[in-house]
Structure formats: C-alpha cells, structure tokens
Amino acid sequence: MSVIEKDVILRNSRGLHARPAALIVKTARMFKAEIAISKESDTVNGKSIMGVLMLAAPSGTLLNIRAEGEDAEEAVSELTKVIEMEMEY
C-alpha cells in the first residue's frame, strides 16, 4: 500500500466554493485510495463534499493531500491538477 502526500496551493481565484469543491470530490472518487485533504489542523475526507466544503478555503491556501492505496500516486497527481487549476467559475 503506498502513501503519497503533497502540499498544493489552491489557485482558483474565488476560493474553494461549491463548484471547485464538487470537482475535487468527483476527481477523488475516481480512485480507490483513501484521500484526506487538510487545511492547517482541519483534515477531511477528500471524497466527501461536505468535508471539502467545510474547509471554506480562500485562494492561495496551502492544502495538504494525502492518499493511501494502490492508485495513490495517480490520485494525488490528478487532484494536484484540479487544485492548481484556475476554474472558469
């Protein structure tokens, strides 16, 4: 079982509002790995929309992604893309 951890800065200019949060959760759910996302001391399940929404992270926040499972590496790399992306909305 591999564990991959990475710090990523949230780039979306309006922060982690409902749509980007939904995109993160959708991406996380494509993988088998257990995914945790943390903002400072708050850690939530990356596959849970309410969890990710709860972070209420503004643009520029440092988020930590931690994935555990066979496809952890791929999960972290896909999630990094989403978190670092400027979204249209």
């Binding site: 409902a18 929309i49 309410m50 929404l53 709860m54 209420a56």
Partner: peptide, 16 residues
Amino acid sequence: APEIIKHYLEIRGLGV
C-alpha cells in the same frame, strides 16, 4: 457540525 455546513445534508442526485 462545523458552522459552515450546519443543518446541511448531502444526498447524491439531490445535492445539498
């Protein structure tokens, strides 16, 4: 509940 999601529940297909 964390303040921001207090009273909210998510059902897949219906939303929040």
